[in-house]
Protein backbone atom coordinates (compact mmCIF):
# COMPACT_ATOMS: atom_id res chain seq x y z
CA UNK A 1 0.00 0.00 0.00
CA UNK A 2 1.18 3.50 -0.76
CA UNK A 3 2.08 5.89 2.02
CA UNK A 4 1.96 9.63 1.54
CA UNK A 5 3.79 12.15 3.66
CA UNK A 6 0.91 14.55 4.21
CA UNK A 7 2.34 18.03 4.87
CA UNK A 8 -0.12 18.39 7.76
CA UNK A 9 -0.35 14.89 9.25
CA UNK A 10 2.93 13.17 8.39
CA UNK A 11 3.34 9.72 6.86
CA UNK A 12 -0.11 8.14 6.44
CA UNK A 13 -1.52 5.09 4.66
CA UNK A 14 -3.08 5.66 1.27
CA UNK A 15 -6.43 4.31 2.42
CA UNK A 16 -6.97 7.58 4.30
CA UNK A 17 -6.83 9.37 0.96
CA UNK A 18 -9.13 9.53 -2.01
CA UNK A 19 -7.72 9.79 -5.52
CA UNK A 20 -8.65 13.07 -7.13
CA UNK A 21 -7.35 13.01 -10.67
CA UNK A 22 -4.48 14.14 -12.86
CA UNK A 23 -2.64 17.08 -11.31
CA UNK A 24 -0.65 17.88 -14.43
CA UNK A 25 -3.80 19.38 -15.91
CA UNK A 26 -4.37 22.99 -14.98
CA UNK A 27 -7.93 24.17 -14.57
CA UNK A 28 -8.71 26.63 -17.35
CA UNK A 29 -10.33 29.94 -16.50
CA UNK A 30 -14.08 29.63 -16.24
CA UNK A 31 -14.32 31.88 -19.26
CA UNK A 32 -11.90 29.82 -21.33
CA UNK A 33 -12.96 28.39 -24.68
CA UNK A 34 -14.87 25.20 -25.21
CA UNK A 35 -11.75 23.64 -26.75
CA UNK A 36 -9.61 24.49 -23.71
CA UNK A 37 -12.21 23.00 -21.40
CA UNK A 38 -12.65 20.00 -23.62
CA UNK A 39 -8.93 19.30 -23.46
CA UNK A 40 -8.86 19.78 -19.69
CA UNK A 41 -11.83 17.51 -19.08
CA UNK A 42 -11.23 14.73 -21.57
CA UNK A 43 -7.61 14.64 -22.73
CA UNK A 44 -5.49 12.52 -20.46
CA UNK A 45 -2.04 11.04 -20.78
CA UNK A 46 -1.55 7.61 -19.25
CA UNK A 47 2.13 7.89 -18.43
CA UNK A 48 4.32 4.93 -17.65
CA UNK A 49 6.66 6.42 -15.12
CA UNK A 50 6.63 9.71 -13.24
CA UNK A 51 3.20 11.21 -12.80
CA UNK A 52 1.52 13.89 -10.71
CA UNK A 53 -1.79 13.28 -9.01
CA UNK A 54 -4.29 14.95 -6.73
CA UNK A 55 -5.22 13.07 -3.57
CA UNK A 56 -7.65 14.22 -0.90
CA UNK A 57 -6.86 13.46 2.72
CA UNK A 58 -10.54 12.80 3.27
CA UNK A 59 -9.96 10.55 6.26
CA UNK A 60 -7.54 13.00 7.85
CA UNK A 61 -7.01 16.75 7.64
CA UNK A 62 -9.23 17.09 4.53
CA UNK A 63 -6.50 18.90 2.67
CA UNK A 64 -5.87 18.22 -1.00
CA UNK A 65 -2.32 17.21 -1.78
CA UNK A 66 -0.31 16.89 -4.96
CA UNK A 67 1.60 13.62 -5.10
CA UNK A 68 4.47 12.79 -7.42
CA UNK A 69 4.14 9.09 -8.05
CA UNK A 70 5.88 6.75 -10.45
CA UNK A 71 3.15 4.66 -12.04
CA UNK A 72 5.67 1.99 -12.96
CA UNK A 73 7.45 1.46 -9.66
CA UNK A 74 4.81 2.98 -7.34
CA UNK A 75 7.50 5.07 -5.75
CA UNK A 76 6.30 8.30 -4.16
CA UNK A 77 8.66 11.18 -4.78
CA UNK A 78 6.80 14.03 -3.18
CA UNK A 79 3.63 15.16 -1.48
CA UNK A 80 2.76 18.84 -1.17
CA UNK A 81 -0.31 20.80 -0.17
CA UNK A 82 -2.32 21.62 -3.28
CA UNK A 83 -2.78 25.20 -2.07
CA UNK A 84 1.02 25.63 -1.96
CA UNK A 85 1.49 24.46 -5.53
CA UNK A 86 -0.86 27.15 -6.79
CA UNK A 87 1.07 30.03 -5.32
Amino acid sequence: MFQFKCPHCGLRDANEFTYGGDATIAWPDLGASEQEWFDAVYQRENPRGPHREYWHHAGGCRQWVVVDRDTLTHEIHGCRAASETQK
Binding site: G20, A82, K87
Partner: peptide
Protein backbone atom coordinates in the same frame (compact mmCIF):
# COMPACT_ATOMS: atom_id res chain seq x y z
CA UNK B 1 -17.98 19.05 0.11
CA UNK B 2 -14.85 17.36 -1.26
CA UNK B 3 -15.20 19.29 -4.48
CA UNK B 4 -15.61 22.62 -2.70
CA UNK B 5 -12.46 21.86 -0.73
CA UNK B 6 -10.67 21.03 -3.96
CA UNK B 7 -11.72 24.25 -5.64
CA UNK B 8 -10.76 26.40 -2.68
CA UNK B 9 -7.40 24.70 -2.12
CA UNK B 10 -6.21 23.63 -5.53
CA UNK B 11 -7.91 25.87 -8.08
CA UNK B 12 -8.75 29.22 -6.49
CA UNK B 13 -6.68 29.40 -3.30
Amino acid sequence: MAKIEFLLQAVWP
